[in-house]
């Protein structure tokens, strides 16, 4: 345990196994994810990258047949410890989903939802402040400031996804998990979100699952390649894309598998 803290790791996974019923979805994954970096998980469909991402904030708890073994430590604390309340964990580890999923409420209420339930604001002024700064960080403030009371579902796809990012960062998490955040967006919206991810790196540790290798190359500093539930290779993004060690990584990158 000690040695994991010696590195600059925000999140450390040790011997993680995930089962869906009888299906062994994640096999013995060990990985250290650093603070204030963007880490990309890549791999073919069904390789377990999204599953692994969801174990980091225990979203898998909502699925009855899912079972997790091994340790996942955030700042040295095991998040699967019986004493840990997933509610508190998820406030610390935010998540953005594949499809933009704004609540059927106003833009303001969407962003204020997290701070309200976690009691982060003492009064209305503070709440306004949190909403404004989150929207600013998500690069949505200029577009949304005049229509904060309009429903979040009325925004365009790209705006909706940035709203979801603003919603996630409003609870001031330490880690931000993104599950293919651009897969439902057009290229222009994708570019905006990617730009945003790069900025978010200043304040958070960002983990992003992506199908697009180009996207991984553009936004991440570290890349992990998953294949059939195994973590095949993990390292600097440049190295993975230019000089992978494992033949499977190379075949995937050059388009022979996946």
């Amino acid at each position: 345990m000690k040695e994991t803290n010696m590195t600059n790791a925000k999140i450390s996974a040790r011997a993680v196994q995930v089962y869906y019923g009888d299906n062994h979805a994640i096999k013995d994954v060990n990985v250290d994810i650093e603070d204030k970096t963007v880490t990309a998980f890549i791999g073919p469909s069904g390789c377990g990258k999204s599953t692994f991402l969801r174990t980091i904030n225990r979203m898998n708890d909502t699925i009855d047949i899912c079972r997790v073994e091994g340790d996942i430590l955030i700042d040295g604390e095991d998040i699967y410890d019986a004493k840990v309340d997933p509610v508190q964990l998820r406030a610390k580890v935010g998540m953005v989903f594949q499809k933009p999923n704004p609540f059927p409420k106003s833009i303001y209420d969407n962003v204020a939802y997290g701070p309200k339930i976690h009691g982060l604001a003492r009064n209305k002024a503070e709440l306004d402040q949190i909403v404004e700064s989150s929207l600013r960080k998500a690069a949505l403030w200029n577009e949304a400031k005049d229509r904060l009371n309009a429903p979040g579902t009325g925004l365009s796809g790209g705006q909706q996804q940035r709203l979801c990012i603003a919603r996630a960062i409003a609870t001031s998490p330490e880690v931000l998990l993104m599950d293919e955040p651009c897969s439902a967006l057009d290229p222009i919206a994708t570019a905006q979100v990617e730009e945003l991810i790069d900025e978010l790196r200043q304040s958070f540790s960002v983990v992003i699952v992506t199908h697009s290798m180009q996207q991984a190359a553009r936004v991440s500093q570290k890349t992990a390649f998953f294949h059939l539930g195994n973590l095949v290779e993990f390292g600097e993004t440049d190295k993975i894309f230019t000089n992978p060690e494992d033949p499977r990584t190379e075949s995937y990158i050059s388009g022979r598998i996946g």
Partner: peptide
Amino acid sequence: VPQAMRDGSLGLGATPSETIRQVVLPA
């Protein structure tokens, strides 16, 4: 009500009852 809606709320650290009362039921 789409599961994505619940995931969004749970992912922010809401308890299931908060999710139901503030997201699912209004929807």
